[in-house]
Amino acid sequence: MRIVLHIWRQANAAAAGRMVRYELPNVNTHMSFLEMLDILNEDLIGRGEDPVAFDHDCREGICGMCGCMVNGVAHGPLPGTTLCQLHMRHFKDGDELYLEPWRARAFPVVKDLVVDRSAFDRLIAAGGFISVATGSAPDGNAILVPKENADRSMDAAACIGCGACVAMCPNASASLFMGAKLAHLGLLPQGQPERDRRVMAMEAQANRELFGSCTNIGECEAVCPKDIKLEVIARMNRDFLHANWIGRGGLKGD
């Protein structure tokens, strides 16, 4: 099958980028999207051209490295998957695909389709952790967790931090990512000691990273490869309002 690709080429962070057209005459329908890009790159290297840089690692949808915009949709048209789990059988012969990197001020382009997502790491460093005593392993089931809370926490913990939510959000907001982390930790007893401080600190850090804010429209939820729900953002809002007005802690959080 024949696929026409328009790919954002940008030599480095400082360079200006542009869309470049590539034609792939023989794409196998069993290929994954990234394998198709591998084929393109082999071809480009053979011709002595610079291959297209794109992030990838596990190629089984669990690491959160891969991802780009495919025709304006993060991770492409198949819901609930990362780009590596998208196969070419979902496209038609002759399709034209526009590939662009995640675009956000907080995610500067490194090269071509690769962006720097360290802003997410700094959000986690600001509050996305719990403090535990190291040493010998605690007794199993010493701390009781309601099954429903464990399930909801696990659903939120499925977030792989790929950045599709930021990329898809018209405001480049990291709310779904933060909401997922806050729900993941805040639904468990181990997450309670730092709960108020966590939301205040992550919120302040998101502001410093120049992420946008949530307008409650759900683009993030629609493209999230792990199906994180918009409900976690409401939970974050509630946690923030609670920490700000009712919490007894100081406001040093950041």
């Binding site: 304006g72 956000a104 001020r105 018209p170 405001n171 480049a172």
Partner: peptide
């Protein structure tokens, strides 16, 4: 909020779909 959100994405997408909006 609008101002902050606009500045959060200085470079627009060449192609952008609105999925559920």
């Amino acid at each position: 909020l609008w101002q902050q959100n606009r500045e959060a994405r200085p470079l627009r997408y060449y192609k952008k779909a609105d999925v559920p909006t």
